[in-house]
Amino acid sequence: MAINWFKYSAPTNFYGLAGKLIPFFAWPAAVLFVIGLYIGFFVAPTDAVQSEAYRIIFLHVPTSILSMFIYLIMAGYAALGLIFNTRLSSMMAQALAPTGALFAFISLWTGALWGKPMWGAWWVWDARLTSELILLFLYLGFIALQASIEDPRRADRASALLAIVGSVNVPIIYFSVKWWNTLHQGSTIKFTGTSMHIAMQEAMFAMLVACWLYSIAVSLARVRSIILERERNTQWVNELKEVRS
């Protein structure tokens, strides 16, 4: 029985599959989120240096990692869409962008709120925070370009090219910001220096996987709406039971 890999690359089949998959990502995400919060707040010990404020890292670190990870996945889908002309890949890239941007925003927000008690200022031109801010600008550029072009085909391909150029530039930006930061300030105290208690690592990991599953669930849900919007004139969309009822 040859597996037809490309069966689900057609929007018609993928729409149904995504619909079935969402609960399998959404519920585990919620469960892991609760577990992560429980370990993070009740099991993990109070930190010697900053007592309770450090618990923000259970949100700051996963969202930062994911904001970068989603950008690369988005650029990957965009490249696929550009090279193989598969509309679904471009739709997936478009669906991932808002979630990635929100993760970047949360990472900046929690970074600021964590920086205030730790470094005494709401915004510190720390290498990581600065690079995160630039990553948010890249996301906003992608979304703005996608939104400002009417013709979906050109919008997909143009924003795909931008995502590829962006992903090539991200390491360069990260390196030059780190260079710029150490040049002026010397690296600020690193949290990872202190060995992390096992409970902290468990909480961090649980939150990371929770956020990851959450982003998949939300993106799948959003891509389904994009499919509905874009395939509105097709026969199979109008046959759908949701439309009929």
């Binding site: 630039i134 890249l138 370009l145 072009i149 931008l162 360069i172």
Partner: peptide, 25 residues
């Protein structure tokens, strides 16, 4: 990329400035 789009001028800056940051630094 932004050829022929209305509001293209601002959009170009939004797209291009983050990519020019290493040159600025």
């Amino acid at each position: 990329l932004t050829l022929g789009l209305r509001g293209g001028g601002v959009l170009v800056s939004l797209l291009v400035l983050p990519l020019c940051i290493p040159v600025l630094i």
